[in-house]
């Protein structure tokens, strides 16, 4: 996804003279093409994320459209106060992009995991929270946030994520995309867990359960049309995210139903209330937290019978 990000940012910089990219000392050579477009619109802000976020807000308040890019914990939890005060309080149209989200950098340990980012950022007034499921959605998300004038956070993976969409889908902020229609259960996925979610749907289909698979690329604002219709259409909802269950996408969906006086059985798939103290690959970490197609299908089946 990060290569798609660099490529799409280069295109956006060519098309829109307001676009500026700020990077926190990562992406060596990744942005060479963007720099070739206009060297004055790329800034390596060093290992100083609090300042980088304030600088981005100052640029946005002066009519530019800054995108801030670094590894997710450092562009979210590290500088949360700058996001709250400089970006959101001023409603400055800064786009924050976190790379290596969730357990993408499992091997690097919990300092580089990001399992809290959506939870904290969706508490901020005016902030949009997006979790595209593949590179195609990421490219569309970058274009859509640039059309608006609100702060946005986009969490992306690293590289090598499977392509989900063969053709670019219709993409609007706050409108979920049905990836595979179904009518018994709905599997709602936010972000990079889409291939495991599709695998769960395959397993369920083999067991005679029709699962609808949906890309909830926007966690804030949620899609009220989709959620509003869900209780009549499905016996069960499952939310899937590579993020802590506390406060993330699953929590947001549950809050939505409570706020609207609606009820629907829900299972939230996400990481536990725990740091991972042993090393391991992303696949290992996903297995540890039950974030596999097999486990999702098994728990959904158990709930239905």
């Amino acid at each position: 996804m990060r290569n798609a990000f660099a490529d799409e940012m280069t295109r956006l910089a060519q098309e829109d003279p307001r676009v500026v990219l700020l990077s926190g000392d990562i992406g060596n050579k990744l942005f060479d093409k963007l720099k070739a477009v206009d060297e004055a619109r790329f800034y390596n802000c060093g290992v100083a994320e609090a300042n980088m976020m304030g600088v981005a807000a100052g640029m946005a308040l002066s009519g530019l459209r800054p995108f801030v890019y670094t590894i997710t914990p450092f562009t979210t939890t590290r500088c949360f106060e700058q996001i709250r005060v400089d970006v959101c309080y001023h409603h400055a149209p800064v786009v924050i992009v976190g790379t290596g989200s969730g357990l993408s950098y499992a091997e690097l340990g919990p300092t580089h995991h990001s399992l809290e980012d959506m939870a904290i950022l969706r508490t901020l007034p005016g902030m949009q929270v997006l979790a595209p499921c593949d590179s195609t959605e990421l490219r569309l998300a970058l274009r859509e946030v640039l059309k608006g004038d609100s702060p946005a956070y986009i969490r992306i993976g690293k590289k090598g994520e499977p392509a989900i969409h063969a053709q670019p889908p219709k993409f609007r902020i706050g409108e979920a995309i049905v990836v595979r229609p179904g009518n018994d259960v709905a599997l709602l996925c936010a972000g990079n867990m889409m291939s495991e979610t599709l695998k769960a749907a395959d397993i369920l289909a083999a067991r005679g359960v029709s699962a609808e698979v949906v890309s909830f690329h926007t966690v804030k604002p949620l899609d009220p049309g989709y959620l509003g219709g869900a209780p009549e259409r499905f016996r069960l909802l499952a939310t899937v995210e590579e993020h802590g269950r506390a406060g993330g996408f699953g929590s947001a969906v549950a809050e939505w139903f409570v706020a609207h006086g609606r009820q629907v059985p829900q299972i939230s798939f996400g990481t536990d209330d725990a740091f991972m103290h042993e090393v391991g690959s992303q696949e290992y970490a996903r297995r540890k937290f039950g974030l596999t197609g097999d486990n999702i299908a098994a728990r959904v089946l158990a709930r239905l019978t």
Partner: peptide, 25 residues
């Protein structure tokens, strides 16, 4: 007013962003 301050240490990064924006524009 150019910036809502009160939490200390925010004004200089904001100002630096504005100064860079002036240069870019």
């Amino acid at each position: 007013i150019e910036a809502a301050t009160g939490s200390l240490g925010h004004g200089l990064p904001l100002g630096l962003g504005m100064a860079l924006a002036g240069r870019i524009q």
